[in-house]
Amino acid sequence: MRTREPRPGSFYALALFFALFVLFLYGPIITIAILSFQGPQGGLTFPMNGVSLHWFVDLFEKQAVGDIWGAFRRSFALGLMVMAVTVVLSVMGGLAFRRRFIGSGALFYLIIASLIIPSILISLGVGLIFDILDWEVHWTTSGFGAQLTWTLPFGLLIMFAVFNRFNKAYEEAARDLGASPWQTVRFVVLPIIAPSLIGVALFGFTLSYDEFARTLLTSGSYNTLPLEIFGMTTNVTSPVLYALGTLTTVFSFLIITSFIALAVILRRRRAKLGSDAGKGMV
């Protein structure tokens, strides 16, 4: 057993600060979750005017709101597409960047640029290209590409961090035992980095699912869910907006927790199989 120093006084002040910070992060979303159960006569603020599922029922009636279910299906499909491409390209990029190659420095800065460029520029630029070329903007083409400029840098930076901490002895051992480069990657490297790939997938899906600015001018006539919700804020003034917000946030939470659970399970399984690779953070 570890001997414990007594907590310094500053600990309690900082712990209180942290608790308030968490309240600041989650408080507003909890408020709208409660208010989405407003009675049929209830408004956008407290007090609660009865408790009902009225506004959730409204969501399922096509007249009350726009095409939110179509928008949800599109966002979900797009999220999966972006996730798949982000994971695959991030792993490939991560593998490539373990060695310096001609242009690796420039490419690294291009990746950083993709992350920090104001989103509206991507939206405008991609929109302009499609306009000039007389192509039709669509969420599966222009929207897809525009979102990748946002998710790929996150995926790549995670992979860079993972490979920075990767113990090359495992690969050398595989090579010494006669594994081909592909076999080394497939049976040694990928299993070791698998939990981190869950993290990359989580970023890929959720950042796409919630993306607004880069999709604005690139999704065409069919809105994704965030665009549809933003459209609602200008003309819907009933708690149905909160009901939708609650529902999609619950959906996000389900996705996040299942990804995290999956990562934890993978990590446990790996620990049980006796490898101590990547015991550090990340």
């Binding site: 408080g27 979303i29 603020t45 407290f46 996000s252 996040i256």
Partner: peptide, 26 residues
Amino acid sequence: LCTIPFWTSNIIRMISWIPFLGRNGL
């Protein structure tokens, strides 16, 4: 716990300030 909100929708997180800050808000 701190990073989970980052993976949810910014638009919803903005909307969620209405009942708190509104004229008749909390």
